[in-house]
Design a protein around this nucleic acid. Sequence first.
RNA 1: UGGGAUAUCGCCAAGCGGUAAGGCACCGGGUUUUGAUCUCGGCAUCCCCAGGUUCGAAUCCUGGUAUCCCAGCCA
Length: 556
Amino acid sequence: MSQVDTEVRPSNFIRNIIDEDLETGKHTKVHTRFPPEPNGFLHIGHAKSICLNFGIAQDYQGQCNLRFDDTNPEKEDIDYVHSIQEDVQWLGFQWAGEICYSSNYFDKLHQYAVELINKNLAYVCFLNSEETREYRGTLKVPGKNSPYRDSSVVDNLALFERMRLGEFKEGECALRAKIDMASPFMCMRDPIIYRVRFAHHHQTGDKWCIYPMYDFTHCISDAIENITHSLCTLEFQDNRRLYDWVLDHLDDFQADNRTRQYEFSRLNLEYTLMSKRKLNDLVVNNVVTGWDDARMPTIAGLRRRGYTAASIREFCKRIGVTKQENMIEVAMLDACIREELNEHAPRAMAVINPVKIIIENYPEAKIEEIMAPVHPNIEEMGKRPLAFSREIFIDADDFREEANKKYKRLVQGKEVRLRNAYVIKSERCDKDYEGNITTIYCTYDDETLGKNPSDGRKVKGVIHWVEASTAKNAEFRLFDRLFTDVNPAAADSIEDVLNPNSLVIKQGVVEANLMHAKAEKTYQFEREGYFCADNKDSSCDHLVFNLTVPLRDTFA
RNA sequence: UGGGAUAUCGCCAAGCGGUAAGGCACCGGGUUUUGAUCUCGGCAUCCCCAGGUUCGAAUCCUGGUAUCCCAGCCA
């Protein structure tokens, strides 16, 4: 674990509520839950919720359940239940006991629905979806009662049973809670709590053809699991009335310290989509290579990109938890990963746009070994060997035939320091018919290894390099934001705001030490940025490095 | 006059009647064989607006304004 995890606990309005509940004795322990629907991969927005729920459980010595909110089989898939478990654990959290599923409670949920019918608080309605909408009224005009609202308990019991038995078609009827068609809360205008769906469920198979709705299920699931604080996002604020109504009317849930729902604002990140549906579109339309494409804001994508679990946790800590709408700058995320990697990532040299240098006064067959620190500020990380010879590669961007004094790299006729090695001076260069520089001819000063020129010459620039004969070829995947608009979700069409340069692939070279770079191992390629070996495509034969984040660059 | 929420620095965010924390970003100085790191310093006389209460208000009251959410048999 990074040391960032050991710092002071976060403080936010939810923790304040918990502190109070503990002080007043309303609760003696806290029990939260993270309740994703298995209809897509988890993204960084879920990370915020995960860190909140599991973080609270951790800090208060409580428990946090992982519960799949699987009440809509048509949209869900077993693959997602697997990926979600993996992502939660990769983030560094472990749920309490067995994994929970809302579908575990289908039998109980059914009984509770019957209880409501028996209390004359639910009825089977045969209005179709269009009629239901018309009867519901609008934001400003109250709805009107369904003609089926006053059916007898006996009839409703029979009808609901027939629904369960599959005697009605999908959409033909639904079970509704009898609340108030004139309520200012739209969700209280006799909400549907059970609908007919002849769908195969990934957990319950074909046992059911009626499935409970979210509002009916969630509160009961929380109550069954003895959740104390049910945390969700702001758009469920109105739904809280229904959450409470359902539990208020069921005999099993009358304890005054029963579960309560609290809402916080969801994460919005500049330039990124945060809806599973829209992310799914990107996958389906091959805009990206999959849910774990390194440009995706999914946990799997961030991981593949080189983000560490600790950096994501730190990010979630820094953004805080409030009820205010927000739009977090990407700079915040960048800062978190840079902070960690600056301290922990081994340094290495990689040339992304190679151009050859021939050091004419260096002995022809000679290859010498130079020992370089793995980390410039942390000696304990040791040293690594670097080959050096007459022929090396430097980046094409690090050489110019002419330049002003602000350019601190190699200039024709001038000197520059090769990182960890000698001072060289360029004499001339070859170009191809298009004018591209193909070879740069230099001389080196053999007394400058590990020290400055004895005559007091000042060499201002330092550039990185890789020895030619030992260099390993490598593919560099240079990622940029997927969208050109800060808020792609607000765009009319996603295609309009797609960044055509979100992925640029370069073929270059890396120092030989990286030949066995392990998947997801991150390095700092000096003067370039942090890169990690791709967890799917990189191998000794074909090295592939993903740009996690470039180095901070304050140079105009 | 549908209802529910939210308004503190460019972006986040503490603050809970006693005189504006912190982070990110940004701007300067220093160190540096990464234009990185590190380091030193700067960065809200003011808290959406207008009144009011108070010795004292970002915090309390009144009235405005702005923004977000709700009319799926989605979650």
